[in-house]
Design a protein around this nucleic acid. Structure first.
Length: 419
RNA sequence: CGGGCCGUCGUAUACCGGUAGUACGCUUGCUUUGGGAGCAAGAUGACCCAGUUCGAUUCUGGGCGGCCCGACCA
């Protein structure tokens, strides 16, 4: 797309009320806009990144058999009362409101209850299991303190998946598959190396839950990482007993700040029993469905990626989630030939299926380069009188800064898959 | 939820109990053109409500909003 038509603009300075690096850079780049504390709007560039992250997650969930749905944000208190999670003393993040009639409703902060109730209509036999269901849906959580930009907000989209199994053994195989799918997601969005599966409190339903924690100074959590075994233990359960249970030695663990980028739980029959989600087994007996839940917030993931990968000049997007792969920077200074060359290259690249942001603005080189660094697209291709004279384009990789001089065909060859 | 700090053009900042200044951005013109240009001319601002005062953006109180530390965080 032509940058001159993009309605968002970059800013030289970050707003004073944002301290978190992810919020500062994303706001300066025009990716997001803060609506209020803990609530951010996604602007064109930010939405493109968000959608790409969402799509990667979607592909990985589909790969293990997930079926996508969308549940409502408006929640009927009845199902929550059945599980004891309607009371605000028990769950302090509820946003509650009323219908015009005075009937109380809640804004969903998670969806075990409504989905479990819904599945009663569709699961009645062992033949109906196992199943995976997931959604990308807006959650509302009345956090006492929103903070750290996209890392902790009051309104956010979450991919929440739920598994339904016949037995704990079957559940365990589903759970392991989900773990692998999650690893795939972190790897594909560029933070695989810094993300560790982490043992955390299992709550009332099982001994442990698993978190995916990404090592980062901006993190709210403290984890103890075993580099040798590539796993971690959340500080909340870091005891001698747990270490022994997991076969870990205190001396092999190092402390680090981490961001929780995913969390998966075994739910057992906590919800199926409370809401009556049962199935008829082969022997005719009535049994409870064994459930699991699996969450990732694409927005928090986006914030984490900015925290982990950006440098002092701006954002550094991995190719898989960059809003565009190529930043075509035209330094024309009114030279018509440069403009023509840029237009031609833009046509060729987009024709080859490469996403290009074309900086066709009437601005000086310094400003364009600074903006380009800030926006952080993976490859900057400069077209100018210089490159015209040289007969090749200057291509600079945002990550690492490597510069190459390539012809149009070499560039297209590089950017498109070979058949 | 406890504690602290803060609220001034679009953004970032300054000063002041008596005409609110600067930088970037924006508009117009000229020059400039490979790392956030220069000159000239413009437009745009005190969160809300009360109180003190001849006069409040400034002082006091309350409200609303924001950030930070802590607590909390299926």
């Amino acid at each position: 797309m032509r940058q001159s038509l993009l309605f968002t603009k970059t800013r030289r300075e970050a707003p004073k009320d944002e301290v978190a690096k992810n919020a500062q850079l994303l706001i300066r780049g025009g990716y997001i806009h803060k609506e209020m504390a803990g609530a951010y709007n996604y602007l064109p560039l930010g939405l493109r990144v968000f959608k790409k992250i969402e799509q990667i997650i979607r592909e990985e969930m589909n790969a293990i058999g997930g079926q996508e749905i969308t549940l409502t944000a408006l929640q009927d208190p009845a199902v929550w009362k059945a599980t004891g999670r309607w009371d605000s003393a028990t769950v302090d993040v509820w946003f509650k409101t009323q219908l015009a009639s005075g009937t109380e409703v809640g804004l969903g902060w998670t969806h075990e209850e409504p989905l479990t109730a819904l599945m009663r209509e569709h699961i009645s036999s062992y033949k109906d299991l196992p199943r995976w269901v997931y959604q990308f849906q807006t959650k509302f959580r009345n956090e006492a303190r929103a903070k750290s930009g996209l890392l902790r907000t009051r309104e956010f989209v979450m991919k929440d998946m739920y598994s339904f199994a016949r037995t704990t053994e079957e559940h365990d195989t589903l759970y392991e598959k989900a773990k692998q799918a999650y690893f795939n997601v972190y790897k594909r969005v560029g933070i695989g190396e810094k993300t560790y599966i982490t043992f955390a409190s299992g709550g009332a339903f099982s001994k442990y839950s698993h978190e995916f924690q990404t090592e980062c100074e901006a993190g709210e959590d403290i984890s103890y990482i075993s580099d040798g075994k590539r796993l971690a233990v959340n500080k909340e359960v870091y005891t001698d007993e747990v270490l022994q249970d997991l076969g870990l030695e205190k001396g092999d663990m190092r402390e680090a700040k981490t961001i929780e980028v995913g969390n998966i739980f075994s739910l057992g029959t906590r919800f199926s029993d409370a809401l009556g989600l049962n199935y008829r087994a082969e022997d005719g007996s009535e049994k409870s469905v064994i459930m699991g839940c699996y969450g990732i917030g694409p927005g928090r993931l986006m914030g984490t990626i900015v925290e982990v990968l950006s440098d002092d000049k701006g954002i550094v997007w991995p190719e898989s989630i960059a809003p565009f792969r190529v930043h075509l920077v035209e330094l024309g200074n009114g030279n018509e030939d440069v403009g023509k060359e840029a237009a031609e290259l833009y046509r060729e690249l987009t024709g080859a299926g490469v996403e290009v942001l074309w900086d066709d603005r009437d601005a000086r080189a310094g400003e364009k380069f600074a903006d380009s660094d800030l926006l952080g697209l993976p490859l900057r291709v400069v077209v100018s009188e210089k490159t015209l004279a040289a007969g090749s384009f200057e291509c600079v990789h945002r990550a690492g800064g490597k510069t190459e001089h390539l012809s149009a065909s070499e560039l297209i060859n590089r950017l498109t898959p070979h058949v």
